[in-house]
């Protein structure tokens, strides 16, 4: 069952009709509907191309949150060998919203850490919809530390609506955990590369994505606040999320222009959820390319590179 987004509804209708025709043809072989069905297919393809040719920022948010979009688990499964998950923050718990461990990437040992949202009701609850608690950030800190001591490059995959706004999370120091995780990213003496694969939700994303190189999928978003949150605060109306998404400039294209993101990984027409393998492969290539760029830099140089990059944030605005 394909999950259609709100703006894909007309497409769903056409594809549904084509499907129906073919189902009819299967039950009564004497009917010849193939031509008609093919015409519908062509119409659907054109519509898909038109829909995705110019996605508005709000539609990009919806695509970025699509349940069938490849998640952290999918990337780790497809791109890494010998993945050995490591658990726990050694203080309180193991946060399942954050997964990570050692693995081989193109034969080379690395540390991979990411946020995982889950793919069905049960795993979503288990993963807390990808919203980490302090122990998740502290686990990431621990893994980054381990990588730093043994010279493993760190790869982070970012996909979170944000840090979890809960009672226990606050009690255990959500802000401190995020601040320390960002500081840890900045202090690493090994290369750190990051890919925003879905949603880059505010501080919860920064704690992972403060990297030497940041790549972003074409229809991913990365923002200081969710469009819904921004709309309810600035427009006093949560329904104004389209306007807020527009104003926040949260698309990969805008962020690239602002020098927040170093490269955009293109998604085929229809988005990553329709072309999972292609997109996962492209992300793998982007990670390899970014690691290559940092090859041969010593600990001081990677650290200095990261600091320089973040000290310059805000030097570039958008053209009017």
């Amino acid at each position: 069952m394909t999950h259609y987004l709100e703006f894909e509804k007309p497409l769903a209708e056409i594809e549904g009709k084509a499907e129906e025709l073919r189902a009819m043809a299967r039950s009564s072989p004497e009917m010849n509907v193939e031509d008609e069905a093919r015409a519908l297919d062509a119409k659907a393809a054109t519509m898909l191309r038109d829909l995705y040719a110019k996605l508005t920022p709000w539609r990009k948010c919806q695509v970025a949150r699509h349940p069938a979009r490849p998640h952290c688990v999918d990337y780790i499964e497809a791109l890494f060998d010998e993945y050995t998950p490591l658990a726990g923050d050694r203080a309180f718990a193991d946060d399942h919203a954050v997964m990570g461990g050692m693995a081989r990437f193109h034969d080379r040992p690395v540390m991979v850490i990411g946020q995982e949202k889950g793919h069905d009701t049960q795993t979503r609850i288990e993963r807390n919809f990808g919203m980490a608690r302090p122990e998740g950030y502290r686990k990431a800190i621990r893994l980054m530390d381990l990588a730093d001591r043994f010279g493993l490059p760190v790869i982070t995959l970012v996909d979170t609506p944000g840090a979890y706004p809960g009672k226990g999370a606050e009690e255990r120091g959500q802000s401190e955990a995020i601040a320390r995780s960002t500081a840890k990213c900045l202090s690493l003496g090994v290369p750190l590369v990051s890919v925003i694969i879905g949603e880059g939700g505010s501080g919860g994303a920064v704690a992972f994505a403060t990297a030497n190189r940041v790549a972003m999928l074409q229809h991913s978003v990365y923002s200081v606040i969710s469009p819904e949150g921004c709309a309810s605060i600035l427009w006093k109306d949560a329904e104004k999320m389209r306007e807020a998404a527009e104003a926040l400039r949260l698309t990969a294209q805008d962020l690239h222009e602002l020098a927040v993101v170093d490269r955009i990984v293109p998604e085929p027409v229809g988005g990553a959820h329709r072309h999972r393998e292609t997109v996962i492969g492209a992300v793998g290539e982007a990670v390899a390319a970014m690691l290559d760029e940092l090859q041969g830099m010593d600990a001081g140089a990677v650290r200095a590179d990261r600091r320089r990059k973040y000290l310059q944030m805000g030097a570039r605005g958008l053209a009017a």
């Binding site: 601040a179 990213c185 900045l186 920064v206 606040i225 926040l248 400039r249 944030m313």
Partner: peptide, 23 residues
Amino acid sequence: GARMQEGILSLMQMPRTTVAVEE
């Protein structure tokens, strides 16, 4: 918190100020 009107650039002040404090 962060200033929403500066979008991602206000978010980027989190790592940016962290660099300053670390130095």
